[in-house]
Design a protein around this nucleic acid. Structure first.
Lengths: 220, 220
DNA sequence: TAATTATTCAATAATTCTATTGAATAATTA
DNA sequence: TAATTATTCAATAGAATTATTGAATAATTA
């Protein structure tokens, strides 16, 4: 076997992965599936594209073995094929965050406008939880909470937040997290909490980042 | 600012990165630049494409801010724009290695044929170096060694290996490393060393992986 | 069995990406 | 200044990717 041949094989295998990633909808799909598995229709709805189109993108991802399927009745549930798929997305996202001032500015503008400027890191969250002087809220949809969440976190999906604010202890600050750094659920939650006089921060990253650090997590 | 708008901005920024990566030649360029900076001509030669074509690919990478340039005389030197760029490539590569049995089989077939089946991890290398009972060889081109190498490693580019084997101590095993897991310099070196009766292994990964773990390294 | 539902497939036109060619640019040397 | 060199630009044709449409499939329910 020639050197050249080997190299070509290896690169042509890897380029299949990058081509499958090279589309904005497919990146969004990976970000969504990092939270929990989803049907084709759910994905089409969240991406605001036709079902046929969503299916087409999912086929592309499946072809590259980035996602896998599980059939249940006449639903097909898609999930990430591997934890390493999330790590690729995460490294891309981290590069994007650092590199493109535009993204940071966009996020910052949004956060300032929401008065939820303060955000804390996963390490800071761990320390505060250890000292038992915070409440941790998971404001993602319940399905995503059930698929995996930070221990001690309470599930309060955005649509139920207003009705459940009253039940929160007034003496402890609240840390809110959601899907990831680009997810705005947590920003909106922090805004609502602060309006009710509750001290609140958002977690910079999201649950998949917690999980990717091999920190313990709860399910269901 | 609407939720939708923000999301779209963020994803459209990130998709620029993935599109820039989605080409076999551009992946190879990133792998090459992870070793040391290079001129357009050097890249064109190593990729075996026309200079205009190499320049075009480099412009694409530059547009995505994955690489940056430095002008010297009438040469333009390209380099990776950021350490994080290597981390993206590394996570992609790791996913590919795990996921595609084909790649592993291809590499394994090649290594078996070269009789250099044994390879060791970076952690094992560190331990062996600590015990001072190994010789570490960097068989990449000298320019890449000068741009950064594992401490204690001797620079023995492939083309000088045969003439320098005699000078190596016979009583210590040799660990050879090169650019990365797909690089075959180390395989060939191990084969040559073993033929001369010297015990030799290859390092599974390459220098950029050592560097990306924030381990100390030497330059020039 | 027929109707319904979720998903996939197939064909198409519009768009984007690619390699090639040769000319243009910018820095250096004669 | 003219010639040389490394790189980039611009135009182009061919190839690949995309969203859309409507039909086909496969699992379920009536």
């Amino acid at each position: 076997m020639e050197k050249k041949e080997l190299k070509e094989k290896v690169y042509s295998e890897l380029v299949g992965l990058t081509k499958a990633l090279a589309n904005p909808y497919r990146l969004q799909i990976i970000d969504l599936l990092a939270q929990s598995s989803r049907t084709v229709e759910e994905i089409a709805t969240q991406l605001d594209v036709s079902i046929a189109n969503a299916s087409q993108h999912l086929q592309t991802l499946k072809g590259a073995q980035l996602v896998s399927i599980q059939k249940e009745g006449h639903y097909v549930h898609y999930r990430l094929a591997d934890e390493k798929v999330y790590l690729v997305w995460k490294s891309l996202r981290d590069l994007g965050i650092e590199r493109f001032a535009q993204i940071e500015r966009t996020l910052k503008d949004f956060r300032e406008q929401k008065n939820s400027f303060q955000s804390i890191s996963i390490d800071e969250l761990i320390e505060k939880v250890r000292q038992e002087n915070v409440v941790v809220l998971d404001v993602r949809p319940e399905k995503e909470y059930r698929a995996g969440h930070i221990p001690q976190a309470l599930s309060v999906p955005m649509e139920h937040l207003s009705e459940r604010i009253a039940a929160l202890p007034k003496d402890k600050p609240v840390i809110v997290y959601c899907r990831g750094p680009f997810c705005v659920f947590a920003d909106e939650a922090v805004e609502q909490l602060q309006k009710q006089g509750i001290k609140a921060w958002r977690l910079e990253e999201g649950f998949p980042d917690w999980k990717s650090r091999n920190l313990p997590f709860h399910m269901a």
